[in-house]
């Protein structure tokens, strides 16, 4: 019973997170400006991280925790580099 409840709600949550990743991708493709695209990409990263956490709960192992932390770090570094680029046109000053 409890397995059934949890697996249904995890599936539902994963569907919702997949939809929100799709919405971020739409914002990324539509723009209209570079900052909108980067914002979409950044939100996509956060949603992907949340998705990994739900997958981790489903699997019952803490292996996905490191993956989630990594994807968060990568997303952060990528977004900061791109925002920096927008501001000055160069990544390293």
């Amino acid at each position: 019973m409890s397995v059934l409840i949890l697996s249904w709600s995890l599936t539902l949550a994963q569907i919702m997170l997949a939809v929100s990743m799709g919405l971020c991708a739409v914002r990324f493709l539509r723009g209209p400006r570079a900052q909108d695209r980067i914002l979409g990409l950044d939100t996509l990263y956060v949603n992907a991280m949340l998705m990994l956490i739900t997958i981790g709960i489903g699997s019952g192992t803490t292996l996905y925790f490191e993956a989630a932390l990594l994807i968060g770090t990568l997303g952060f570094v990528a977004t900061v580099a791109m925002a920096k680029f927008l501001m000055r046109g160069e990544v390293i000053e």
């Binding site: 409890s2 397995v3 599936t11 997958i55 019952g60």
Partner: peptide, 12 residues
Amino acid sequence: MSEAPDLPLWAA
């Protein structure tokens, strides 16, 4: 449908 661990009902 995703798999899920076996938790007690309240925790689930």
